[in-house]
Amino acid sequence: MTIWLILLAMGLITFALRASFVLPGDRLRLPPLFKRALRYVPVAVLTALIVPMALAPAGALMLDWRNPALAGMLAALLIARYTGRTLLAMLASFALYLLWLRLLA
C-alpha cells in the first residue's frame, strides 16, 4: 500500500513539472537564470548518482584500474562523448565491465 502511495506521489510530482507551463497557458514566464540552471540538472544529478557507485562499488574507495565499475563508467562516458550514441556506449560499457570482472576475478 505504501509503495502505491509513493508511486502516486512520484507521478504527481512528474506531472506537475511537465504541466507547469503547458496547463496555466500564457500566464507564466521562466526567469532566464533558472532556465540556464535547468540545462545542467541531468548531467549534475546523474553524475552525482553514478560516481560513488563506480568509485566505491563496495562502500570503500577503489580508485584502481582493476575496478570493473570504474573502467566501465569511463568507457561509457568516452564512447558517448565521441560518438554521440547512447545505446552503443551503454552496451560497450556493459561488455567491458563483464570482461573486467571475468579477467580480474
Binding site: P42, V43, L46, T47, L49, I50, M53, A54, A69, G72, M73, A76, L77, L78, I79, A80, R81, G84, R85, T86, L87, A89, M90, S93, F94, Y97
Partner: peptide, 11 residues
C-alpha cells in the same frame, strides 16, 4: 544503471 547514466552524461 551506471552504464546507462554514464552514456547519457557522456553525450
Amino acid at each position: 544503471m551506471v552504464a546507462t547514466f554514464a552514456a547519457i552524461v557522456g553525450t
